[in-house]
Design a protein around this nucleic acid. Sequence first.
DNA 1: CTAGACATGAGGTACGTCCCTCATTTACGC
DNA 2: GCGTAAATGAGGGACGTACCTCATGTCTAG
Lengths: 339, 339
Amino acid sequence: MRPTVHDIAKVAGVSLATVDRVLNARPGVREGTISRVNAAIDTLGYVRDVAAANLARQRDFNFVFVLPDRDTAFIAALRDEIAAVQSHARTDRMTIRRVDVSPHDPQAMVAALHRLADEGVDGVAVMAPETPQTRDAVRRLRAAGAQVVTLVSDIQASDRNHFVGINNLAAGSTAGVLVGRFLGARPGKVLVIAGSMLNRDHAERRLGFDRVMQADFPHLDVLPTLEGRDDAAHIAAVLPEALARGDISAIYSIGAGNRGLVRVLQGMDAPRIVVVAHELTPTSRAALEDRIFDAVITQDTGHMIRSAARVLRAYAERREIIASQERIRIDIFLRENLP
Amino acid sequence: MRPTVHDIAKVAGVSLATVDRVLNARPGVREGTISRVNAAIDTLGYVRDVAAANLARQRDFNFVFVLPDRDTAFIAALRDEIAAVQSHARTDRMTIRRVDVSPHDPQAMVAALHRLADEGVDGVAVMAPETPQTRDAVRRLRAAGAQVVTLVSDIQASDRNHFVGINNLAAGSTAGVLVGRFLGARPGKVLVIAGSMLNRDHAERRLGFDRVMQADFPHLDVLPTLEGRDDAAHIAAVLPEALARGDISAIYSIGAGNRGLVRVLQGMDAPRIVVVAHELTPTSRAALEDRIFDAVITQDTGHMIRSAARVLRAYAERREIIASQERIRIDIFLRENLP
DNA sequence: CTAGACATGAGGTACGTCCCTCATTTACGC
DNA sequence: GCGTAAATGAGGGACGTACCTCATGTCTAG
């Protein structure tokens, strides 16, 4: 049988009230008594029953996901996963909301975070660009007592408790190795398509990619970034021209808008181009299956959302987090190991 | 505020006792009343507070992991992860035990499972070969009211609730594609090392590997399996001879004993051999970093153990499981995306 | 020596659910 | 219409913890 607070009281020779004061760090207990209680806790191997504790204190955690109001498949996947977590959260005394913020209006994000701080939520998972303003907004959230987790792209030097996402430099390097090794010895040009180099994630991926290409595959000629604006239509419009300049043997698609890329490649009967893209979506999945894409590098959206919720909860309950469980992997998917 | 059983009673116009009977599927309630209560549950959006429920019924789940008593790095990793889950389980009203069973004694496994069935545990996660005896033992566990999850290798046509592991056929195919594409156009011989072809996992991986090689890389010559007995020393002893026969351009290591493989490859200054192996362990990790291995295909041991515990718990509590969360991925690790 | 601050004890109620008992009502077959 | 069984109500104690009040004991400064 698990030891309870009553057992602690008995062993320590104090009353229940005192045990409670020690356990919940309330004032009014002498040093010596505190250590006597702690000793009893240790000998008994007492572990607080969190379920009972939450029940007693009527806690209902209030967490909010703040996402850019964009229309990419990746964001859509995140939304779906949030919806999934929402339904299961209720079982667990948590309420999860989602707030969509225009990505084009820098003020909107900050305003949304300020509002949440004033509202007094228990925790916020935020996917936002790293600017001095967002940094401050995160600090304010933390000061208001909220736990904060940054999602997908980190906001450094803010007070955020945790970052849920991958190392994009490493992701870019991984893409580089795949492109290089899949191409083999034959020289050729490599086209890189990104959303925008102002986007930190994209810039980091590009950097990691370039490093590997220079170091390990110097015979390949990596072209300057083609800005695709994360937009399928735009990519479909500008890509043919870029390809027409000739001798493209591989494409690295850093950002969103893969639907445009697939459309163009499907319409070609040119020699096979090695394609490595990011994010596993219905489009990229189908492209892998059709052998239009050779590899997709992705971060498990379900894992990320669940991890964010778990971490927020753990911080709110002052519980330890399991590092290995919360580490988001850089997943590589080929046609053969699709989940 | 979350609706409670009292609210249901009020809305349905019945007493608390009746609500309770309906909620817990106890007899003594008319059909019509049941549907009235269920209607109230729906309108209110009631969700049972599992924490309170577990508290009230004083449940302490008793789960057991049954593993082969072997000394590979993979098994060691599983043990470590079980230990990690054990410590966190106490917080959550679960007690987790581990039972190690000799892999050489087929009777021992069955006897252990029978013992657990008699003991009346709440759930068992078992990693065992698929034999008629183990199949029956699993059935008996289920009949005794235990939830059963098969781990790493499935036991089909038993009554197991769930399988935690990967599709080894797909894993083998993935290895095949990596070997084939990393080699590029140059022809050569591919050496395959497995523990034993009697091992179902290994046989399946080999099958998946062969299929891809035949279909997509016919210019490569895949040699018959070198049986390495999952033993580093044995591999180190027999491998040099196999390599001496010449022209080996790639090695696919299906099973354990990679330490032996690494030792032999380190001692060579022959031309680079492409190596794809299974399971991310300290050895294979170091080999990736040293560029001795080119890719490692692995299943996340931490994820598997946590998933097994979660699934057992979910079945024991008659809760839904989140399929996407419990799906074990076939992870590909290169030097660049190591976690 | 005493007021006041501090430390502790004793006891209670609450959280949401489970599960028990006992009384009462309703339905149904004869 | 009566007996019986099934359906339902009313009520309460328990689980382990949180948190409250009030009483009492102990120490210390002045």
